[in-house]
Write a protein that binds this DNA or RNA. Structure first.
Lengths: 350, 350
DNA sequence: TTGTACGCGTTATCAA
DNA sequence: TTGATAACGCGTACAA
């Protein structure tokens, strides 16, 4: 599959020009060059001119590592995601990157590959000051661990999770409310036996959505049936298998609320194989508004969180906090998502 | 939409322990601490023990900026993509991140938002030595500019594009061959008038795929009809609009080869609105194997490049080159993609 | 208005 | 086996 084309030699890299090189070329001291570049002090027009010319000629650019060491800050944030391939994370990352970029911050991307261990490893990026702060999206680490990092003085921010720690800004959605709305919608469509597909049992997103599910049942005076609950690990294949297990246990439910769209897509696959029509034979609602959901037939009803905005908002808050130093105000924000009713849960729609 | 929860105060950050703190605590010099940590010299067992204990107690971690300054390298690569939301880029980034991580390199993600200007801006990351090298995926910058950067001593790597420069490793696919195969497949299905949807006219991917398109026509002795060519900027909406323009100019073509899957999805939307059945009324083949293509009905035929492997391979080569210093061997690799025939171009398939 | 001197934290060199 | 010292490149008191 791979064909090699040619081999060649890399020329030796010539050292970059330093501020001293510029100073010598311009016939001034390094301090003057620094003042010109940072506008940090008075400089005579003639000196400024010579410095600018020298900078131009030598293509001088201040070394980022030296600046970082000097200021003890790197203007870089790390973003830890479970899987950058999932559009949910990618979209949040994009929101973060856009805002951070506007504030002259860089973003280190960290793909934890759904492994708690890797997620923990990436925290060293804060400890060795590779980054000024870390943004975690739906982290697997527990509240206690996260709080411990913050207590040790590392700047953290959370997306899709709330934690009560004064130094940790959070942006999250009203999972319970949105899930309640989604399930109430299914009930409104006439469904009385509705299954729930959880992700990982210990994930906040899982149990808050379960809570909303149960709340909607209660409000409609429908019984809670434990046999209609299963877990699919937030993945397509997990959703597929969980749905098959559900069907083995019960043939009587007519709708499923999946804790994310990936699992909902697995349900689609299972239904296709079992010859169950959606929504006539099985109504489906997911969460995340994964891009794929718009293209499946019928289109997938889902809960749509403002992913890009969530990323942008948290990035802004975390960077604010870094800038304000000792006593920045930190906040937690609840953003609201909306239910997108599409063909998978309502006849008459595509 | 956004509700503020609470404000609070950030405690002052206490300074990190430095190597000198550790040295004092252990009753040795900084040099000895360094030797213990890096295994870079002989250390007596007793000294080693005291140092390790001090490191533990102070939770010492060497400052990354200081290391970078000392070594004049950051162990970081930048990856510039047009749009991290497009699964093609996300998958390559994942391949890069995985491999780079294994080699102890970090990845700075740069979303150029399809703007040539932003892409050029990100090149400063190499110039100010924020990163040791830059990986560009299907860049908008021209060969001359890229070569100029490399000539100035910046380490670059290219994915999805070939350039003849001794210092720039490249990983790319046989666009012409794959496109030829795709169009030949359509011809094999009985299509004689086949449209081609280009991305940006000046993108390598566009014209190489056009070349393959024309080659397949030639090989089948079919005439080339300029009115069957249009451009959709590689986006879904662009594909949608371009397809409508094509149909205005000609009603007689029965198949389209789109230079990427995003545009192919736009064609799906246009066909749905026009009531044209796929593949019976219009066969469609795309490029990239976008994840969505598997879920649309009918499934989208596409050319499948080994995205993850491409990212991993280039990351490895570029990092190799950085490590070997003056005279690393650099290479260009052509990887082969395969044609996935699915329902959009062959009856009898889903 | 300018230059000198020092420190940010680390590591390599050298002498002991 | 160890420690003092000198960079890496920058910015900033402070002195001139």
């Amino acid at each position: 599959m791979v064909r090699e084309r040619k081999g060649c030699l890399v020329p030796p890299r010539k050292p970059d020009a330093t501020i001293l090189d510029v100073a010598r070329t311009a016939g001034v001291s390094a301090a003057t060059v620094s003042r010109v570049l940072n506008g940090s002090g008075p400089v005579s027009p003639s000196a400024r001119g010579r410095v600018e010319e020298a900078v131009e000629r030598l293509r001088y650019m201040p070394n980022a590592s030296a600046k970082s060491l000097r200021h003890l800050k790197t203007s870089t944030l790390a973003v830890i995601v479970s899987d950058i391939l999932v559009s949910y994370y990618a979209e949040i990352v994009k929101g973060i990157e856009n805002t951070a970029g506007a504030l002259r911050y860089k973003i280190l991307i960290c793909d934890a590959q759904n492994q708690r261990e890797k997620e923990a490893d990436y925290m060293t990026l804060a400890m060795d000051r590779t980054v000024d702060g870390i943004i975690l999206i739906a982290p697997m680490l527990g509240d206690a661990e996260l709080a411990a990092y913050a207590d040790r003085g590392y700047a953290l921010g959370l997306i899709g999770r709330r934690i009560d720690h004064p130094a940790i800004p959070c942006v999250y959605t009203d999972n319970v409310g949105a899930a309640t709305e989604a399930v109430a919608h299914l009930i409104g469509q006439g469904h009385e036996q509705i299954a729930f597909l959880s992700g990982f049992a210990d994930a906040t997103d899982s149990y808050e959505r379960l809570e909303g599910y149960m709340k909607a049942l209660r409000q409609a005076s429908l019984p809670f049936r434990p046999e209609l609950i299963d877990s699919g690990g937030f993945s397509e294949s997990g959703g597929y298998e969980a749905f098959l297990r559900l069907r083995e246990r019960s043939q009587s439910f007519t709708a499923v609320f999946a804790a994310n769209d990936e699992m909902a897509l697995g349900i689609y696959r299972a239904c296709a194989e079992l010859g169950i029509p959606i929504p006539a034979g099985m109504a489906v609602v997911g969460v995340d508004n994964n891009r794929v959901g718009k293209y499946v037939a019928p289109a997938l009803s889902t809960i749509d969180p403002p992913k890009h905005a969530m990323g942008a908002l948290l990035a802004e808050k975390l960077i604010d906090q870094l800038g304000e130093g000792r006593h920045a105000a930190t906040r937690c924000f609840e953003v609201s998502s909306r239910l997108l009713v599409r063909g998978s849960s309502a006849s008459g729609l595509t």
